[in-house]
């Protein structure tokens, strides 16, 4: 039948987060991966900033998971760019921090600011790295079913699923509007040229709202009565898979325990 629509607007997609593969990490149960991610990131977040060895060990664990996953370094570094704002903010802190100061050449730096900077940068990079490792090795649909298995309320999973399902359509719609503007000579470069973009955003909002109404009708017409049905059987999570998924978290926990041991 007919080909893809929107050839002009095809580009990055939320489904492109997943990097297909057959590594041990790819094949691991998604629920175990998600549970492992949540526990690992929580432990990293509560690790004291002075526990440099523990945080470094956590960073090594994330790097090892990426190596085992065979994720391309360029792709990982590209996605880590998402933490750049945090890193930039962190790098400011030594200059604007108060308290004891140290001098590096002619530059005066706050000791507290340096620790705060390290804390933000290290935890942002480790946390983002762990999230990248999981999202790059788990298909979006498996992530959603993982949420279901973790007993996340069905309504929240449905909202996440709808967002995943329709974000590409909305982005595609915006891209088509931009192309329509450009094709009629619009060349947005300056702030005062923002009006058409604002108008297109408003238009997308209205269209999205109307689409939401149509989707609701489509749901009603297939018997939806306000509660989402269970459309697939939930496989039980095996203990062995859970243990593997929680392995990085166990290492983070060990590091934390050593640091906090009196």
């Amino acid at each position: 039948m007919s080909g893809h629509h929107g050839a002009l607007t095809r580009g990055a997609s939320i489904h492109g987060l997943y990097q297909p593969g057959h590594s041990r990490v790819h094949l691991l149960n998604p629920t175990a991966k998600m549970l492992g991610l949540v526990v690992f990131v929580t432990l990293v977040a509560v690790t004291p900033r002075t526990a440099v060895a523990a945080l470094s060990a956590n960073a090594v664990v994330v790097a090892l998971v990426m190596v085992v996953s065979k994720l391309p370094a360029r792709m990982v570094l590209g996605r880590l760019a998402a933490v750049v704002p945090f890193v930039a903010f962190g790098l400011l802190l030594p200059f604007i921090g108060t308290g004891t100061r140290v001098h590096v050449g002619a530059i005066s730096l706050s000791v507290d600011g340096l620790w705060a900077s390290w804390n933000i940068v290290a935890k942002a990079v480790i946390g983002a790295g762990a999230a990248i490792a999981v999202t790059s090795t788990t298909a979006i649909t498996d992530l959603l079913s993982g949420l279901e298995r973790l007993k996340v309320p069905a309504v929240l999973v449905a909202i996440a699923a709808f967002m995943v399902r329709y974000v590409d359509l909305v982005v595609g719609e915006l891209a088509r509007m931009r192309i329509a503007m450009v094709s009629r000579g619009h060349d947005p470069r300056w702030l005062w040229q923002i009006r058409p973009i604002a108008a297109s955003l408003a238009s997308v909002f209205v269209r999205t709202y109307e689409r939401g109404e149509r989707i609701h009708l489509a749901m009603l017409s297939r018997g939806y009565d306000g509660s989402l049905p269970v459309t697939r059987d939930v496989e039980p999570l095996r203990t062995s898979e859970l243990c593997v998924g929680l392995l990085p978290a166990a290492i983070a926990f060990a590091g934390l325990a050593i640091v906090l041991w009196p």
């Binding site: 699923a161 709808f162 689409r211 489509a218 269970v230 459309t231 697939r232």
Partner: peptide
């Protein structure tokens, strides 16, 4: 069975299998 004009309105679940299961599961 009502099939809507825009299939994107009808295919709202995360996979086609889940979409096809949606109606029977509601039954």
């Amino acid at each position: 069975g009502l099939v809507f004009q825009d299939p994107d309105d009808q295919l709202f679940m995360s996979t086609i299998g889940d979409d096809v299961a949606f109606g029977p599961a509601n039954l």
